[in-house]
Design a protein around this nucleic acid. Sequence first.
DNA 1: TGCCTACTCTATTAAATCGATAGGGTATAG
DNA 2: CTATACCCTATCGATTTAATAGAGTAGGCA
Lengths: 136, 136
Amino acid sequence: MLSKKTKYGLKALTFLANQKNREPVQIAEIANHENISQKFLESILLTLRKTGFLGSKKGKGGGYYLIKDPQDIPMTTVMRVLEGPIALVPCVSLNFYEKCSDCPDEEKCSVHKLMIQVRDSTLQVFGDNTLADLMS
Amino acid sequence: MLSKKTKYGLKALTFLANQKNREPVQIAEIANHENISQKFLESILLTLRKTGFLGSKKGKGGGYYLIKDPQDIPMTTVMRVLEGPIALVPCVSLNFYEKCSDCPDEEKCSVHKLMIQVRDSTLQVFGDNTLADLMS
DNA sequence: TGCCTACTCTATTAAATCGATAGGGTATAG
DNA sequence: CTATACCCTATCGATTTAATAGAGTAGGCA
């Protein structure tokens, strides 16, 4: 299941990408438009700014704005930042690899084999889509 | 993330499918072989029996055994039974559909569009694989 | 019949995660 | 200098997850 964090983050990014210009948009405006808890969104936008997707401006007339071109923001990156690993099990994760505590030999694990296929097909989708593809 | 329940369930199914005959195998044996908490596995096997994948026999010499042919058990079915919806958001789920509380119009939702693609590609993988493909 | 074995079922619990909220801090425009 | 709006940490309640406990029931066998 996709976390609300990721869902809200994607919506916010899309909303910002859909702005005519790259002027700062206030958190409150995004939150209202997308029906998101403002405080929760605050923390998500903060993450997205620290990752380098968004810029921010403080004070009156401040807000968040997109830094990069939407087509230069692949979904793989966004998903990894917001949701974490794309793989369904840590032992097949490319960026967040972890050994399973059960499983003496992961090459022989039946789940492992299946999950690699799922990972690759999901990766394909996220690799094919950028923020530009989510825009209206 | 895949739940332990699903992971264990898949391992147990594979283990049973790999048996030479369809004689009952005790929970304890499966649990030991796959490094699974026996009590936890108990409840998983119960679910799999009620769903119709497994049969069981009580008393001495009892245990669980596969009822169907491995190639007649598609991963889509197993995943839905153990893990629940395959879709990452309820609003794109085919078998567990639910409307999002945010989202006035899901056709216009950017997340929706993306998640349909993920669902379809995952569905493809699970549709292509049966329990027979997980066997050694 | 009596006993052992092994599945059946419900309830409980500890830990982790999630979504949301609170509240004070800080930079900037005007 | 003051109002605005982002910055940041802490906390909280609810839910879910994984595991455990323990009593119940059916079956095989002497």
